[in-house]
Nucleic acid binder design. Structure first.
Length: 433
RNA sequence: GGAGAAAUACCCAAGUGGUGAAGGGGCUCCCCUGCUAAGGGAGUAGGGCGUGAAAGCGUCGCGAGGGUUCAAAUCCCUCUUUCUCCGCCA
């Protein structure tokens, strides 16, 4: 949600900045300005009526006590009451319309972003270089199947396409990754939270996934009149709504959270032939970092989150790159986003394993998340940031592909060994599925 | 899942239709006192919204949303959450 005052004061600037995100907002802004005027004039009128009504209301008991005739004043009060009700309904209607248009506007991209889409993304940093093999490397689907790490056929049997099963050493490797990530975050002072995997609709609104992306999540079919639930598409949805409708103290900022959850996504129509295996599924594992900060601290926090995501990938010994997304490639809620992309040899390309974003006050406005500034005693909206740290289901294919050896075995990255009872190499004879 | 009770400020809590939502604790300030404790006094209902340069003024506000009424913390309905008992259960 954008600040209505900003729109009121600089409508042209807002239109220009949203244009960088590929959004022509001229009509919406015009509509907002009109509804906003209408709303304020209705409020003014209604408040005057209410003031009059309050005055009259106080007269009645006084007159009654004095034994005066109250029929005339009661009649006036009744008329005022009707008029107020009509005005209030009109105001409510106007506010709903206004909110609908406002909620549909994406966040403003930071001014330093290049306008346009993916083609304007900018590689900021590269670490390492693509692995060279002196043998014909296998792809991760074959490796995972041959080593018995992942059971694709039975995943499909249980739940259909887009689902798989981690088995034996595969499950332990995935678990080791989660442990490595979480332990690192704990050392960095983040609070570990375990959140519900089913969320009520409001949470999706705060993070900005709704109303636009309502079709991309799984909704549970509840009985008539029951609260609606959806399966969370990322822990961000839960973590960003954690402090909905709260006023935090300035002292307790920044808040730093980390959560592991499976993530559930429909991914309708987004299947590509090169995204085999676990590159894109309906359920994948991810550790998510979220920070709530004062406005002036969010740039620093953003760099911290990017640095943390990079450090995790570096710790695994991988070649990767950090990409600054162009305005249009950032999601609707975000002012800026950097992606960490890891090299997957069989795809001859890079796949996102982390996406770090600064929403500034966009989500905080939607969720009414504020803090009280000590100096002024006033409340302000916080800034929210989030970043994957990391998506394990994209890391595991990279591990097996980048660390494969000529004999088909896979080296376990050093940092993970302590979570795997010291095992250094994954070989065929460890698992039979 | 069934039955019952409750929700008022930072905390406890009074308030069953009528002008400003009691009181206490805590907190802040002041006084008294070598210091501390104790004591005395004052302040302390949030957060929006509208208007205004600001001070201010107006409005909303007693879990949420509706309704009845000239008037609702108070009466009625729906919902949410919490507690107690029963059932079920990892």
């Amino acid at each position: 949600m954008l600040d209505i005052r900003l729109i009121r004061e600089n409508p042209d600037e807002i239109i220009a900045r949203l244009a960088a995100k590929g959004r022509d907002a001229k009509e919406d802004i015009a509509k907002i300005l009109e509804l906003d005027r209408e709303r304020r004039s209705l409020i003014q009128k209604t408040d005057e009526l209410k003031a009059r009504q309050n005055k009259v209301s106080k007269e009645i008991p006084r007159m009654k006590k004095a034994g005066e005739d109250v029929s005339a004043i009661v009649l006036e009060s009744r008329q005022l009451s009707d008029e107020i009700k009509d005005n209030d309904n009109l105001r409510k209607e106007t506010e709903e319309k206004l909110n609908e248009v406002m909620a549909g506007l994406p966040n403003l991209p930071d001014p330093d972003l290049k306008p346009g889409g993916k083609e304007n993304n900018e590689v900021l940093r590269m670490f390492g270089s693509p692995k060279q093999f002196d043998f014909e490397p296998k792809n991760h689907v074959d490796l995972c199947t041959d080593l018995g790490l992942i059971d694709y056929p039975r995943g499909a049997k249980l739940s259909g396409s887009g689902f798989w099963i981690y088995r034996g050493m595969g499950a332990r490797l995935e678990w080791a990754l989660l442990n490595y990530f979480i332990e690192t975050h704990l050392n960095d002072g983040y609070e570990l939270v375990m959140v519900p995997h089913m969320l009520g609709g409001q949470a999706g609104y705060v993070s900005g996934q709704f109303p636009k992306f309502k079709d991309e999540v799984y909704w549970l079919k509840n009985d008539e009149g029951e609260r609606e639930h959806f399966m969370l598409p990322t822990a961000e949805t839960a973590l960003v709504s954690l402090h909905m409708d709260e006023i935090l103290t300035e002292k307790e900022l920044p808040r730093k959270y980390v959560a592991y959850t499976p993530c559930f996504r429909k991914e309708a129509g987004s299947h590509r032939t090169d995204e085999r295996g676990m590159i894109r599924g309906h359920q994948f594992n991810k550790v998510e970092m979220v920070q709530y900060t004062r406005p002036e601290d969010s740039d620093k926090a953003f760099e911290e989150l990017v640095g943390k995501a990079e450090a995790l990938v570096k710790g695994l010994g991988f070649h990767f790159r950090t990409v600054k997304l162009a305005a249009e490639d950032c999601s609707a809620s975000m002012a800026r986003t950097y992606d960490i992309e890891i090299h997957i040899p069989s795809m001859n390309g890079y796949k996102e394993v982390s996406s770090v974003s600064n929403a500034r006050d966009y989500q905080a406005r939607r969720g009414n998340i504020r803090f009280r500034r000590e100096e002024t005693g006033k409340t302000e909206f916080v800034h929210t940031l989030n970043g994957s740290g990391l998506a394990t289901s994209r890391i595991l294919p990279a591990i097996v592909e980048q660390n494969q050896q000529k004999d088909g075995s896979v080296l376990v990255p050093e940092v993970l060994r302590k979570y795997l009872g010291g095992i250094e190499v994954l070989t065929k004879d460890m698992n039979h599925i």
